[in-house]
Design a protein around this nucleic acid. Structure first.
Lengths: 346, 346
DNA sequence: GTGAAAGCGCTAACAC
DNA sequence: GTGTTAGCGCTTTCAC
């Protein structure tokens, strides 16, 4: 049926073992041999059988990705990133929805899971659940928190620097001339919200802009909460000229409210988001936002897990904190504030 | 390391084969034996090694999913559906982006792919590419078109009845009292657009509503195109009281335009979408739309492929057309038209 | 740097 | 109903 390693070996006139070495990028192969093998691989269209290789190598880990909010745009991107990784590697990915679980249910689920998987990926807010981390930790299962906002010594993490990112995007607004900059905070149960908000405050402080409590609204990462927060903000006697929403969904909501009130974005109001999910480019104007390298983060998370699984159980506990570079994505939702624009004749 | 089938067999005092039969739910096992085995499984926490079973059963197919528009919300849902299936089964999923390929590039890529995979899933618009279908067909690779809009005898398909769905959602609008119903068509390169539009026309005709060419606008499934189409529609001397957008992204755009013009949805204008992607519930009001059972469709598609792969190469050509049930999802974007509402005192 | 032997954990096919 | 035999496609280990 499919092309096997033996066929490739026969064509290249080497042993299957050599083909295996070439395919897996091992070093101890003569260059000429390697080329001959690669040629055979190309000609035959050989693709290694993952079931066989993982069985032979005993590297068939089961990795679980547990989530609680399948509708969040961010999680979608993450799942996609993980999907890309699974397509390249050998392990079984188990994905599970723990939405609405209370502490008891979480404990039970974690206990069950602990017995059947080699590693677990935890996106927020699960990566901040004491119950889950405690239970899985007791079972000796390697875990990695993804996009956790901050480092917790009990669990490895792959994340960006949410503080810095929040600070940078606020600074971008300041550089555009804004001083009345509002912030719609993210869900209080997630450290990332907190860190982004701290970044916002730090940028203001460094620029010598006095903080204004009225300009800070609590949001919950949902479109709905963004709607409410923006309404309050724009109803202020002295409304902001720019809004920093802690994620794209809320930023999209802010744009919608602005439009409904006859405000043009960015001419009358600048808006920035966070995450660079599909929502950011679905609307008009497209959103200036912060991009998390989700594909790379998924990659790194799985790498950490695989490494831990291959290690002896005794030292599963090696905890790493992998902070990846984020990126400010400048699009069309920011302009100088109206007053300045007028002054400079625009 | 992990518990194996032999350990379970030893504990239950049967052969590994019997354990296998019990675990895989085969019938020919005495009830008492089954119970004994299940008990051993439970006590040991046995979880079958997928790599081993797929290798032994020769069920380790490679299945490719090719796409051209990774940013479309619909594709995201599909990928997610496929991910759920892969989590349960054992085969290697290859996902590949052919965005921007011309006919020559498509031909080349299809030829390469044909040699290395057991089956291919083709979402629109690739499932309508003569080049791809021809090339893959020549290679004898089973294919399945997903959400293709209509049946093509050259390729198996899993889809909903787009005509019927389009008709039903239009009828829903008619039942609410609307007679000036606009349609924003989908991308002309996809049969599904055509079928949905035909459904719209059929509903109008059955209700005795004369078609009005002004109320039909060409769209391209993008938010941007929805914006333009809606602007034209609402600039009409006699604008529609309801808009049927051929997908959710365009419906969301329609809502946005309505709001910008000071129209309330659904009080002043009813809007419906299609697909029930996350966009439908991200905005306010939440969109009434048609839900495709994407998870089930992914399931069915992979099932068809797996079945075909297991068959002898000679009869790969069995082509099936699997039409699944769609669902009208009623939310908050439809109300009676303004005039009627006024008449009935609302 | 390369090859030979052995076996990963499971199930198809058959025997009983 | 249940057990036996053989082998899926690959990699490990060790020899050369």
């Amino acid at each position: 049926m499919a092309v096997t390693i033996d066929e490739v070996a026969a064509l290249a006139q080497v042993s299957p073992m050599t083909v295996s070495r070439v395919v897996n990028g091992q070093s101890k192969v003569r260059e000429s041999t390697r080329e001959r093998v690669m040629q055979a691989v190309g000609k035959l269209g050989y693709v290694p059988n993952r079931a066989a290789s993982s069985l032979a190598a005993a590297q068939d880990a089961r990795i679980a990705l547990i989530y609680t909010n399948p509708s969040s745009a961010y999680l979608r991107e993450l799942l996609l990133g993980v999907l890309h990784v699974t397509a390249r590697t050998t392990f079984q990915l188990i994905i599970d929805d723990w939405e609405g679980f209370d502490a008891a249910a979480e404990r039970k689920a974690a206990r069950t899971l602990g017995g059947s998987v080699g590693g677990v990926i935890l996106p927020p807010p699960l990566c901040e659940s004491k119950v889950v981390i405690g239970e899985l930790g007791r079972a000796g299962v390697p875990m990695v928190a993804i996009a956790s906002g901050s480092f917790n010594p009990d669990i490895s993490s792959v994340r960006i620097d949410d503080f810095l990112a929040g600070k940078e995007i606020t600074e971008y607004l300041i550089k555009a001339g804004h001083t009345r900059i509002a912030c719609v905070k993210g869900h209080p149960n997630q450290m990332a919200s907190q860190r982004r908000f701290e970044g916002y405050k730090a940028a203001l402080k460094e620029a010598g802009i006095a903080p204004d409590a009225q300009l800070v609204q609590q949001g919950y990462f949902t479109y709905r909460s963004g709607l409410d927060a923006t309404e309050k903000l724009l109803s202020l006697r002295k409304p902001p000229t720019a809004i920093f929403a802690s994620n794209d969904d809320m930023a999209v909501a802010a744009v919608s409210v602005a439009h409904r009130r006859g405000l043009q974005v960015p001419r009358d109001l600048s808006i920035v988001g966070f995450d660079d999910t599909s929502a950011a480019t679905t609307i008009w104007p497209e959103l200036t936002t912060v991009r998390q390298p989700i594909g790379n983060m998924a990659d790194a998370a799985i790498d950490i897990l695989l490494r831990a699984i291959r290690r002896k159980p005794e030292d599963h506990r090696v905890v790493v904190d992998h902070v990846m570079a984020h990126q400010l994505v400048v699009r069309d939702s920011v302009a100088p504030p109206p007053v300045l624009a007028r002054k400079s004749g625009t």
